[in-house]
Design a protein around this nucleic acid. Structure first.
Lengths: 324, 324
DNA sequence: CTGTTAGCGCATTCAC
DNA sequence: GTGAATGCGCTAACAG
């Protein structure tokens, strides 16, 4: 509540001196420093960060945009991003777009209004053009927003290949692929590669396309039920963790033996994939690393530390479970 | 980049007029308004929110403190809090304390420095005294921080009672309770009530106390393994969702039949409880409502809309699954 | 109806 | 070494 001016008055010095003393910038004689510190303590002085922000035109806040915080992948991603940002002295403002691209737009506006110093976006409802207009720091996860905006993601193609190989090893013949609908995101690569590898080896691949911004468990479960109803003869399933888990559950409910009758492979390998029995076999992406790299790339831009690379592809690996 | 002054110059009017025209406050003649709007568009004027914040001494940001964003309950809670805050025109700043009370303290400091207008805390590592010092709006979830700070939580006692009744109905005789260690949080009530009801009915209750700020799946799983190793003869388990799911998994791995041999009941009934097979029987708290009430209570304080109640207890209900 | 002025609280010149 | 003055960009009160 007390301002720097009141402290200066109390200590009988000028505001400039108080500022220097408390911030350790510039020279202040030991005695006046003592006086100032005493005055500050007496008045319970706390610097008003809003004034600082205005002066420096910087808030130390980074915006993080995700489609759904309740989704295990995004909650883990945000958690690690927040921790990394904290290490580097930044705060995290979060936004759930829940499929509403207007919300994405509003966050971009906040960038322009200086409310945040930069943005990490993992939600992709908005047109690329809107992003291109921005001049301030943005980092994109899993979707190419043009040459000006760094892109970070995992090696989806390799993930698709690994998943396909698991199907081949288990000698599956009729495999179901649950994929997203958006060709714009990198995740699409894993479906393409998965299909390509399997079809080259004479395996039939059926496909179900889900709305790419539907993340609810119920939606996944209904889809799983439909898959088994319409295609009772499939012997393999590949999809995101949630889709895979929903299929596992639906299969168990129907008494299908796993992995004898069917192979199920997920993608992400987040915590819930370990909660089920048997544990889900899945392709794991390294969320911690993804968060760390995203944050550092963004802060390189914010603080103009160095030139940032345009795209970074992180490795993936197999989480061996009991479903494939 | 362009400031209000430049717009005023471009339009050939004063800054006050520009401010009024663009904010819709005060009267501006249609023609000057046109001029101003044209000038603003030409210069791509965007108001700098930092200056506004300084003037109003308000940021429109609410801080949300949780122990672990990756935990299903907290990720759902934060999601719904964020959505509700958004509806009311506020932004969400988040903080993962991951058990480090220093982080909680730093967020309280931000309150004092005016970086956030208020705080909703669901993390309880810090001493109550530190909270009591604060004069700005704080709402606490699940822990009593004194008469000045509104407390919101669910009816843990009823939850414990419902869980106990499930055990009684299944005629369990030796039940294991996985509880947290902190007597300061409301969650403690459910353990107390659970034990009380069962012991009154002649059921033996064993107990394992977990570090209350450990939320990792691995920790839970190891604990579950230990429980079955040391107490192979138990026929019932009650604990948080994660503990219950870990026990379910460990039981299935050991070939224990569920629910024939053992009843497992969770608390929270978050999404992962539906992913397993059979679906977990659990006590559900209404996270959406919890989020909504917390936000509204806080904003009542921030905007001084009305007197806020000291404590609010939300109802719980049984999620019927296949494990009890 | 509109232009001018005075802060919001702080940090940084520049004289002294 | 230190104090006074200037400005960050905006809003609101006050003249005109």
């Amino acid at each position: 509540m007390a301002s720097i001016r009141e402290v200066a008055q109390e200590a009988g010095v000028g505001v400039g001196t108080v500022s220097r003393a408390l911030n350790g910038s510039g020279y202040v004689s030991p005695e006046t420093r003592k006086k100032i510190e005493k005055a500050a303590k007496k008045l319970k002085y706390t610097p008003n960060e809003l004034a600082r922000n205005l002066y420096h035109n910087k808030t130390g806040i980074v915006g993080v945009i995700v489609p759904d915080l309740e989704h295990p992948f995004f909650s883990a991603l945000v958690k690690h991003i927040e921790m990394e940002l904290y290490e580097q002295g930044y705060k995290t403002m979060i936004c759930n777009t829940v499929g509403i691209s207007r919300r994405e737009q509003e966050y971009l506006d906040m960038l322009e209004r200086n409310m945040v110093d930069g943005i990490i976006t993992a939600s992709h409802g908005l047109e690329v053009e809107e992003y291109r207009k921005q001049v301030k720091p943005i980092v994109s996860i899993d979707r190419d927003l043009g040459a000006q905006i760094p892109l970070i993601g995992c090696d989806h193609a390799k993930g698709g290949k690994l998943a396909a190989e698991l199907m081949l090893k288990a000698q599956r013949k009729k495999v179901f692929l649950v994929s997203g609908i958006s060709p714009k995101v990198m995740a699409n690569d894993r479906y393409v590669t998965f299909m390509k590898v399997l079809e080259e080896n004479g395996v039939t691949v059926l496909q179900e396309v889900m709305e790419w911004n539907i993340f609810s468990w119920d939606a996944h479960y209904h889809m799983a039920e439909e898959i088994f109803r319409l295609h009772p003869d499939i012997d393999g399933i590949f999809g995101g963790d949630l889709a895979a888990l929903a299929c596992l559950n639906a299969a168990q409910r129907r008494g299908i033996r796993i992995p004898e009758d069917i192979s199920i492979v997920g993608f992400d390998a987040m915590t819930p994939s370990n909660m089920v029995y048997p544990q889900l076999t899945a392709i794991r992406q390294n969320v911690e690393l993804l968060a760390e790299v995203s944050v550092n790339t963004l802060l390189d831009m914010v603080e103009q530390r160095k030139n940032v690379p345009h795209r970074l592809i992180l490795d993936v690996e197999i989480q061996r479970g009991g479903t494939a």
